[in-house]
Nucleic acid binder design. Structure first.
Length: 261
DNA sequence: ATGGCGTAGTACCTACGA
């Protein structure tokens, strides 16, 4: 089975591109981030037409995550990690959705960006990462095949960015962000893309600005972390890079891992 | 040395992103 993640940057603006990608690559599971719609605006019937059933967790304007599965409905396990946003009284943002699909635990996340650094948004990012790590420890203890995937908004190492110097002050690159990510790997989770591309140079994001795509000024922030039960079954992992070059593209590309049945 | 783009909301600008 193929399990994929795609930060689509607005499901309404991206719907034709998204349907196209699903039909062309036919992932068994597709996790979406930044759907940027309230629950009522989610176009579930468009996915049903092409054989996908979905669960989703939206909010107005920003954030929002969804899990699509080919021919079966994801069984929801958890919605949200129980952590409020950085502004007083704003409540929790729609950034986490966990489900089971065909015996595999699917944990879909959209981690806070954390800019500007330093500041309350960066503190929120680090707190969110610790909350995520706690949840991952719980899942680990269940000893189920699991993948924790999505837009982590962390560039793990210098080999994962076109220019470490140009990005040095960005929240995605700060030592605190990287250390929090490294702790998850130290806990035993396997970074699928990195494991199969240990020399780096694989990007999943290119900014819309400054001709970043044309100049290949990208970086890797979309990750798939596998539990040992799934890491043993990994046969391939990759990035659907060409979708970044299409009309009305998202600024992220899809990423995916192939798991033996 | 700078700025450069795109989405959504209620909108002719602002918030947000990375």
């Amino acid at each position: 089975m193929r399990i994929a993640s795609f930060n689509i940057n607005g499901i309404k603006a991206r719907l034709p591109r998204l349907i196209e990608w699903l039909e062309e690559t036919r992932p068994s599971v597709a996790c979406l981030q930044e759907i940027k719609t309230m629950d009522e605006g989610f176009p579930a019937e468009e996915f049903e037409k092409i054989g996908y059933q979905a669960i989703w967790h939206g909010q107005k304007s920003f954030n929002g995550v969804a899990i699509l599965a080919d021919g079966t409905k994801p069984v929801e396990i958890k919605r949200g990690l129980g952590i409020d946003g950085p502004k007083d009284g704003e409540g929790e943002q729609a950034r986490y959705l966990e489900a089971e699909v065909n015996g595999v635990r699917i944990c879909n996340l959209y981690l806070p960006n954390g800019n500007p650094h330093p500041g309350p948004k960066f503190d929120y990012k680090l707190a969110w990462m610790e909350k995520l790590r706690s949840r991952m420890k719980e899942i680990w203890a269940e000893e189920v095949p699991a993948v924790v995937l999505g837009d982590y908004n962390v560039i793990p190492e210098d080999k994962d960015v076109w220019s470490p110097k140009a990005m040095a002050s960005d929240a995605l690159m700060q030592p605190e962000s990287r250390d929090a990510y490294k702790r998850m790997l130290a806990d035993g989770w396997t970074d699928a893309i990195d494991t199969l591309n240990p020399r780096g140079g694989v990007w999943t994001y290119w900014d819309y600005q400054a001709g970043a795509w044309q100049r290949d000024h990208g970086f890797r922030i979309d990750h798939l972390l596998l539990s040992p039960e799934l890491a043993d079954r990994m046969t391939a992992a990759g990035v659907d890079k060409e979708y970044r070059g299409r009309e009305k593209a998202s600024d992220h590309t899809p990423v995916w891992v192939e798991i033996a049945d």
